[in-house]
Design a protein around this nucleic acid. Structure first.
Length: 481
RNA sequence: GCUCCCAUCGUCUAGCGGCCUAGGACACAGCCCUCUCAAGGCUGCGGCACGGGUUCGAAUCCCGUUGGGAGUGCCA
């Protein structure tokens, strides 16, 4: 429910608020992670706080050093700049392993934890036998001491744990539904919940803003904070991003890599703006807003409670708007990576920046993502156009197509070479045979570009030049027979 | 199964008891503009999951039902 009554004012924290973003390095940057990072970043900026980046690399099997750079790059792309004074880190969880173990031992010494010799299989068997799932606290009072292979478990106290969440209000958990969870594995390594909390404590984190999937972990973590003798941070659990089936976005099924959208030519401000409209909306009737106004406007208490569908179509629409908002110079600069020799279909030496500059304003209104640009202008730089035969056949199907195109070609040979004059030729030829401009331009367009759609024809011809235009029309007439 | 979360057009959202005949955006359809395709302008389509309360008045508060989701690891 979004009622005001269920909202709680955030706990007043004296001093600098410290937010954190704690991804595990998994090889690519999840759009959901990007959104969570953005929330933390925006809050840090708005409250003159700190954004701490901590790489949770405890699971050695997934830890690859280059992934860390990937995270840094992805964050930088969406404007979370590691050189900004609000940014702190990156820290590596693996570097704090000793601290985690130390904390576990303190918990043990204070009676908040105990050792257990049961294996996972044994626990499962006991659970099956008793009909109650999970660990039953078998070793609670057995007074076991540390042994290789023994895990250390947290002694969950009786009572209820109330989590005060800035987006959800109060969430109550009956402690009897929470099992005595593992702190240290049999091999002595710390588990996520412990490491996560100990790091937050030692990094003096005051605000934990993360995805909703962590809400079930929160009572456990809160008990840990308290057992360790620290006041709990302010919690906020934001709704997850889902796919069309309303399932949490997953690497397997869904297109979730931020890098992938970047490589397709989604522009960072569009991505940031779009991500921020998922679960939240800027004040007023416009969704396309400056980042600065998002920073000024954003409040956790107005974040929605329900999951949001990550809609690529709407992202594209946002991106198109951002592209059109650019000046032509900005647009041209943004296109550059997609025109590079490794991406473009034309021979590098045939590309002409000044030619692109002249046609750029016309392609700017016609693309939603930058990766569409090469296909729209390739005819200008290819030695020979690639003809779409379906489009070609259709354009030359009518009886008038060949004779009138030939007529146009002959007049193109001598006419003044500017769009108006060129257009006039086609219009006059058409008028004489009662063929509308809209139809007559089709064969010429296919001859020139190989396609039936594209940038405005006469501007394109002007840029291409008379010789090349005549050559292509001749080629097309030959092909048409 | 158990614990927790959630529910406004197809989608993202506005809404905080009367400004609601429920507003905006994407998508979709139509019209205008137009050398194709876009862009732009205009119009349309379309929603408070259901049932009970509370109240003079409910999309908004309460309860229930139904439906969705997350978690339930010696993963993070």
């Amino acid at each position: 429910m979004r009622g005001a009554g269920s909202r709680l004012v955030s706990t007043v924290v004296s001093g600098t608020p410290r937010y954190r973003f704690a991804p595990s390095p998994t090889g690519f940057f999840h759009v959901g992670g990007a959104r969570t990072a953005l929330y933390n970043w925006i809050l840090a900026l708005a409250n003159d706080g700190v954004f701490v980046l901590r790489i949770e690399d405890t699971d050695e099997s997934r830890n690859e050093p280059q992934w860390t750079q990937g995270i840094l790059d992805a964050l930088a792309w969406i404007g979370i700049d590691s050189s900004d004074p609000h940014f702190e880190g990156p820290y590596f969880q693996s570097a704090n392993a000793a601290t985690h173990v130390e904390a576990a031992h303190k918990l043990l010494a204070d009676g908040h934890a105990y050792y257990c010799d049961l294996t996972s299989e044994q626990i499962q068997e006991r659970a099956k036998a008793s009909g109650k799932p999970g660990y039953d606290g078998y070793s609670r009072d057995r007074g076991l001491t540390a042994q290789p292979g023994y895990s250390l478990r947290f002694r969950v106290p009786t009572g209820t744990t109330v989590v005060i969440d800035e987006v959800r209000g109060q969430v109550e958990f009956d402690n009897s539904t929470i099992e005595d969870f593992v702190l240290l594995r049999g091999n002595g390594t710390p588990v996520f919940n412990l490491a996560n909390v100990v790091d937050d404590v030692s990094m003096k984190i005051t605000n934990v803003v993360r995805a909703e999937e962590h809400l079930p972990n929160t009572p456990k973590q809160q008990m840990l904070w308290q057992a360790l003798g620290h006041p709990v941070p302010s919690w906020a659990h934001v709704p997850v991003l889902v796919n069309e089936q309303r399932k949490k976005l997953s690497k397997r099924r869904d297109k979730v890599a931020l890098e992938q959208y970047r490589d397709e030519g989604v522009v960072a401000p569009a991505m940031v703006n779009y991500l921020m409209t998922l679960g939240w909306a800027p004040t007023g009737d416009t969704e396309i807003v400056e980042f600065a106004s998002i920073v000024a406007d954003f409040k956790l208490s107005s974040v929605n409670h329900s999951s949001a569908f990550f809609d690529v179509k709407k992202l594209s629409a946002f991106n198109g708007e951002y592209l059109r908002k650019m000046t032509v110079e900005q647009f041209v600069a943004a296109c550059e990576p997609w025109l590079a020799p490794d991406k473009a279909p034309w021979p590098a030496d045939r590309f002409d920046q000044s030619v692109f500059l002249r046609i750029a304003p016309h392609v700017q209104t016609r693309v939603a993502v930058l990766s569409e640009v090469p296909a729209m202008i390739d005819f200008l730089f290819m030695a020979d156009v690639v003809i779409d035969s379906a489009a070609f056949d259709k354009a030359f199907a009518a009886d008038w197509a060949r004779p009138l195109t030939r007529l146009i070609r002959d007049q193109f040979a001598t006419v003044d070479w500017n769009p108006e004059a060129l257009k006039n030729v086609v219009e006059v030829v058409g008028a004489a045979s009662d063929v509308k401009l809209g139809k007559l331009q089709a064969p010429v367009r296919v001859a020139m570009t190989g396609r039936s759609v594209g940038p405005p024809l006469f501007e394109s011809l002007e840029v291409l030049g008379r010789d090349e235009t005549l050559r292509r029309i001749d080629a097309a007439l030959t092909r048409a027979g």
